[in-house]
């Protein structure tokens, strides 16, 4: 189990400061050299430009550590395994495509059930309960999104 020390947190903050600075500089260059349609009231680049300057200032103050005295180093550490990020997003894409092309009831039951299986602790796996919850979710979703608040779905194969 890797522990994130105070130094690691500072490191993350500095990383964010660098990112903010980069973004601000790119944005300001874009405001200066980009193709903006002229408009009244300061032009449509006015507020983006102000936002970039603010971002620049915030990024600098993080980097220079001017506010360091006021910092209360965060004690909580956030560890997100990459597998959860990739898995969560892929599951979302698959879920949405399945609902649109296969049908709500089937996709919800199968994919929700699969996710529940994947996330359950190995020693407390309860397939029966998961099947029931997944089926119920499929039924409720079907009712909700075809009867109560219908969503436009390209002709699904199943339902």
């Amino acid at each position: 189990m890797r522990r994130f020390s105070l130094a690691a947190w500072r490191y993350r903050e500095l990383g964010f400061g660098v990112l903010a600075l980069l973004l601000a500089v790119i944005g300001l260059l874009h405001v200066r050299y980009g193709n903006w349609r002229p408009g009244p009231g300061g032009g449509n680049w006015l507020v983006p430009m102000v936002a970039y300057w603010v971002l620049l200032a915030a990024g600098l103050s993080i980097l220079l550590g001017r506010l360091r005295a006021a910092w209360q180093p965060d004690t909580e550490r956030l560890h997100v395994p990459l597998v959860a990020v990739a898995g969560g997003l892929l599951w979302g894409v698959a879920f949405f495509l399945a609902v649109r092309h296969i049908g709500i009831a089937v996709s919800v039951t199968v994919l929700v059930g699969a996710a529940m299986l994947a996330l359950s602790p190995r020693d407390a796996l309860r397939p029966g309960l998961i099947a029931m919850v997944a089926l119920a979710a499929g039924a409720v979703f079907w009712l909700l999104f075809t009867r109560v608040a219908p969503i436009l779905v390209a002709n699904p194969i199943l339902f």
């Binding site: 009831a105 039924a139 009712l143 075809t146 009867r147 339902f159």
Partner: peptide, 11 residues
């Protein structure tokens, strides 16, 4: 009731 709804929709 649920089966009924399912049937109605497929029909």
């Amino acid at each position: 009731k649920l089966t009924h709804l399912f049937l109605a929709s497929t029909m």
